[in-house]
């Protein structure tokens, strides 16, 4: 069986290097990765999003037994912490696992043999994971506000909190996944990060010992929680909200830069 015909004659006189195909530009490539990841998340991650949301709702119920309803710092931070926990679960934990798996199985080769800027792969994936958490975070926040007798009018702030906390946490998650020497370690780091976000974000800050509070200040999700918690107050201090969100954005830029560097390192030739 000869299925293959002879090759066409190529003119041997054409000297010099062949023209290079154009490389993909940052934004279109980012959009393509984002779209693909979002579609992928729809197929594969919906059960996990349920888990993330139920976990947060469960924590709300549990904390309701300890914290009274009504305007109090404790009530605000429980509701805000549980909402941001959905983001931490998906953006930090699942993204660390995803990149850990991609790296361990050689899946990164697929991207490394395509002419794409590394930032588009990392940012597109991170953005998809973060935006996927929005429904769960909104649901948790609404349910929490009702349970703890807090106003519902400021839930729109989540439209800023989720992307910014999402950027900070997903950058951290991606960096963990890409830097971990083994897949199991990536999984472990993601889960540790999520546990930290859970304990340090949900527990009312007044009850924490000083060293734990310092640790809390180091965690990027804290500022998302703080910003969101402030908006439940009867007369929110919007300057402080903006300041907290600014910290989130700053940490987001840093952590996504680190993640992009980690990606470059992981596909290093």
């Amino acid at each position: 069986m000869t299925l293959l015909s002879a090759p066409p004659r190529t003119d041997p006189t054409t000297a010099g290097p062949a023209p290079l195909a154009p490389a993909a530009r940052l934004l279109p490539a980012l959009a393509a990765v984002y779209r693909a990841q979002l579609a992928r998340a729809r197929v594969a991650r919906i059960p996990l999003l349920f888990v993330a949301t139920f976990q947060s709702v469960g924590i709300l119920v549990m904390m309701r037994g300890v914290v009274d309803a009504g305007q109090s710092t404790a009530a605000r931070s429980v509701v805000a912490g549980s909402s941001v926990l959905v983001v931490a679960f998906v953006a930090l934990n699942l993204l660390a696992q995803y990149f850990g798996k991609l790296r361990a199985t050689g899946g990164l080769d697929h991207y490394a043999t395509l002419p794409v800027p590394p930032a588009s792969v990392v940012l597109g994936t991170a953005a998809a994971y973060a935006s996927f958490t929005l429904p769960g975070a909104v649901l948790t926040a609404a349910l929490g506000a009702v349970m703890f007798g807090l106003p519902l009018g400021q839930l729109w702030v989540l439209l800023a909190v989720v992307p910014l906390a999402g950027a900070a946490l997903s950058g951290l998650g991606a960096a963990c996944g890409l830097l971990a020497p083994r897949q199991e370690i990536a999984t472990m780091l993601g889960q540790l990060g999520m546990s930290a976000a859970l304990l340090l974000g949900v527990l009312p800050v007044d009850h924490l010992p000083q060293p734990v509070q310092w640790l809390r200040d180091l965690l990027p999700s804290t500022y998302g929680v703080e910003a969101f918690a402030r908006t439940f107050a009867p007369d929110p201090d919007w300057t402080m909200v903006l300041a907290d969100l600014g910290v989130c954005a700053g940490v987001g830029v840093v952590s996504l830069t680190v993640a992009t560097w980690a990606y470059r390192r992981a596909v290093a030739r």
């Binding site: 062949a18 290079l20 195909a21 154009p22 490389a23 992928r40 197929v43 594969a44 798996k101 991609l102 199985t105 050689g106 899946g107 990164l108 080769d109 697929h110 991207y111 490394a112 043999t113 395509l114 002419p115 794409v116």
Partner: peptide, 16 residues
């Protein structure tokens, strides 16, 4: 990457 198309042995990046 701008000269060749590569089919590796792994499909994890595309699986889902």
């Amino acid at each position: 990457a701008r000269l060749l198309g590569y089919l590796g042995q792994e499909s994890t990046a595309l699986d889902e």
